[in-house]
Design a protein around this nucleic acid. Structure first.
Lengths: 114, 114
DNA sequence: TCACCTACCTAATCTACCTATGTATTAATA
DNA sequence: TATTAATACATAGGTAGATTAGGTAGGTGA
């Protein structure tokens, strides 16, 4: 199936996908397709993840122990793979947020003093 | 010569090097080594660019027409390659800043609603 | 039946960035 | 006056998160 590409942001959100996905999982367990819809909805259609990026990120995060997964079969939809954030994932997220704030502060400084 | 590595931020600033470098060049013409010192100084030693990243970024930005360069020989230092931002570069920077603000807003939203 | 939406997956490729190394000039110091 | 350190620029090669492109499959509605 043809996939849309997210040319809007390029590398601008690179390194922050973990942060965004884990933040959403902090609200409760969810699955890839739904999470991407959440991203799209809550960013006013401006942002979403390439499906390949989405699923490979989940795979990496599960390997790293930040999330866990389980399958759930649905009556009116294809089976869904649900993800939940682990304690390690929560720590990782917390650390990521701190790093994000640091990085943002630096960029902001140079933008404002240009 | 041994080069330091910027392990503090990893991919967090990726995609924003153009923005940071062009912002500094907006203050006036400067050269690579000096610009990196500026980065280090104004980020309280938290951030600087790998020299390879620095010079390849300049090369790319010059190819893209965002900056121009000229050599200047110094009496008390090795020759320096100065860069100046072009009109195209100013537009690029302006656009980058807008994109940055967009991206930052999105990340902030998910962090705050996690 | 056909189109479309939902839902997940992987191989190949791209590219900004990093690792490692090299060259050359000037300044400081022993 | 060697030697070391700091300044200053450069390139080859590799990494890894992201994109491109394609695949599989179940469910819905016209």
């Amino acid at each position: 199936m043809a996939q849309r590409n997210n040319t809007l942001f390029g590398d601008l959100l690179r390194g922050h996908t973990d942060t965004i996905l884990l933040s959403i999982l902090l609200r409760g367990d969810s699955y890839g397709y739904r999470i991407n819809k959440t991203l799209e909805d809550e960013s006013d259609r401006r942002f979403f993840l390439n499906e390949a990026t989405l699923y490979t990120t989940f795979k990496r995060m599960q390997k790293d122990g930040y999330i866990e997964s389980y399958w759930k079969s649905e009556t009116s939809a294809p089976p869904r793979k649900y993800y939940s954030i682990t304690e390690k994932g929560k720590k990782h997220l917390k650390n990521n947020i701190k790093e994000w704030e640091d990085a943002a502060q630096i960029i902001k400084h140079f933008i404002e003093n240009g």
